[in-house]
Design a protein around this nucleic acid. Structure first.
Lengths: 231, 231
DNA sequence: ACCTGAACACCGTTCAAGT
DNA sequence: ACCTGAACACCGTTCAAGT
């Protein structure tokens, strides 16, 4: 028995040689478990059936691995966007796909909120947004600035929602109940607006907020394009 | 000499008794050092001249301390907003003040991007934003949803910029140079839009992006108020 | 009543040793 | 050429012991 290695966890990985792709896929499996499984190099080693430090043979450090993992998830986002949409619906589809994927892999969505992967799938996302703002009628500096507005805003929005999923249940519960607890108990004299809207504030959903945020981005592009046409 | 305690680091804190306020102020001093000094309980003990674990006598855990520290920084934001502004300029002043304070205490700005302090200064910020959207003409559910759009968006925007300041210099340098490196080298056939805007994209500044993001929020409120007036 | 300090259960990463 | 595993320099938090 000790002489046949075929039944150990490690040898089950058929070939037992680590590859960048295998490490990225193991990372995605861990990331998909959300807050119940931290994305650490030690857990990654477990998932791969290898020593935790083995990944350093294939990635300079954890940050470089994260960028590769993130670029892979951008592939999922791109795959979710149908062909033949006009510029507004392309931005809407990108937003919806980004949110879905960020909530599927919260640790990735959260960590990338102020980053760039600098990798192929990100190039395609940039190309897509630039195509949309140019189809809307923007050029040169206007196109560049409005691309950044859309790209950075989408990253910030989905990153914000993704980060929330990583908090422990008790922290999330305390934050969520604040509208019906702390904000219900404020002094009506000092905070008349909060008091007046105390019934409506807890009712607002993340989906509503995300929707009007995305529409605000589209409106901003439209308004700028109209201003340019009129002058 | 050993009998007089007046020259030790600890006794310099006049009374040598820790208070929540002293801990919050020490936290702000560390946070203001940005990426060159991590905000850890051990460093906090150093800053206070006390044992690292002494803070657990005054705060349940590091998260509760963070919420108190964050609420204190919201006080700085509120102090920066002049009286007598109309609703648009109040939102602009809140945005500018939030960004300034978040960049002054990056670890706080970053950590609060998807949180609520549930504390007095935050109540005042919420009251301010609600007052602005109601002055613009929104009521009930519309006011609640647009308040959340403004509040959550400002947190996301300033948190995104603050988080960036916490990365190591080499990570920041690699991200910043991507427009003039990786994005300059893309295939012009496959990425015509990126190629066409390769000169403009690196020129866009964080200030420009922040400005149009805030104006987009104001426009969204204005547009909704006009729609309601017209029906 | 409050503070100390050892201890616990974690992190990412390096490097000499193995195969 | 690649993987292992001990080791290092960190984390936040608990708890028995001190004063």
């Amino acid at each position: 028995m000790p002489t046949t290695p075929s039944t150990t966890a490690r040898s089950k990985r058929a070939g037992s040689q680590l590859t960048p792709d295998a490490i990225i896929e193991a990372s995605l499996r861990i990331a998909a478990r959300g807050s119940q499984d931290a994305f650490t190099v030690r857990r990654l080693g477990e998932e791969l059936g290898a020593d935790p430090t083995a990944i350093y043979r294939h990635f300079r450090d954890k940050d470089e691995l994260l960028l590769s993992v993130a670029d892979r998830t951008l592939g999922e986002v791109l795959d979710s966007i149908p062909e033949g949409l006009d510029w507004k619906d392309r931005i809407r589809a990108l937003a919806a796909g980004s949110l879905e994927v960020a909530l599927k892999y919260p640790v990735v969505g959260s960590a990338m909120a102020s980053r760039t992967t600098r990798r192929p799938h990100e190039f395609r996302v940039v190309e897509l947004i630039l195509g949309a703002v140019m189809e809307a009628g923007l050029t040169g500096r206007d196109a560049a600035v409005h691309y950044r507005m859309v790209g950075d805003s989408l990253l910030a929005f989905v990153g914000q929602q993704a980060a929330y999923l990583l908090f422990t249940p008790d922290v999330r519960a305390a934050d969520e109940s604040s509208w019906s607890r702390e904000y219900r108990l404020v002094d009506p004299e000092q905070f008349p607006n909060i008091t007046r809207l105390s019934a409506e504030l807890p009712e607002v959903t993340d989906e509503q907020i995300f929707h009007i945020r995305v529409e605000a981005l589209i409106s901003a592009i439209e308004t700028r394009a109209r201003t340019l046409r009129e002058t």
